[in-house]
Simulated assay, not measured.
Amino acid sequence: MTDHHTDRPHDIRAFFAPRAAGWDAKFPDDGPAYAKGVAALGLQRGDRVLDAGCGTGRALPALRQAVGRHGVTLGADLTPDMLEAAVRAGRDTHAALLLADVARLPLPDAALDAVFAAGLLTHLPAPSDGLTELARVVRPGGRLALFHPIGRAALAARKGHPVTPDDLRAEPNLRPLLAGSGWDLVRYEDGDDRYLAVASRRPSRAPAPSTKGWKKSDGGVR
Rank of each mutant, 00 (worst) to 15 (best):
D3W: 12
R8T: 15
H10K: 08
D11L: 06
I12C: 06
P18I: 11
A21H: 04
D29R: 15
D29W: 11
A33N: 09
A33W: 06
A35H: 07
A35K: 05
K36D: 14
L43G: 03
Q44R: 15
Q44E: 04
D47K: 01
A52W: 03
G53M: 05
G57H: 03
R58N: 07
R58L: 15
A59Q: 06
L60G: 03
P61T: 10
L63K: 00
R69Y: 00
R69F: 03
T73A: 14
A76T: 02
L78G: 06
P80L: 11
L83Y: 12
R91L: 08
D92F: 07
H94E: 13
A95L: 11
A96C: 10
A103Q: 14
L105W: 02
D109H: 06
D113L: 05
V115G: 00
A118S: 15
P125Y: 09
G142T: 06
A145C: 12
L146N: 09
F147D: 10
F147M: 08
P149N: 05
I150W: 08
A154H: 03
A156R: 14
H161Q: 12
H161A: 05
L168Y: 02
L174V: 09
P176F: 12
P176H: 10
A179F: 10
D184A: 14
D184E: 13
E189D: 15
D190W: 11
G191V: 13
R194C: 01
A199N: 04
S200G: 01
R202S: 03
W214M: 14
K216V: 12
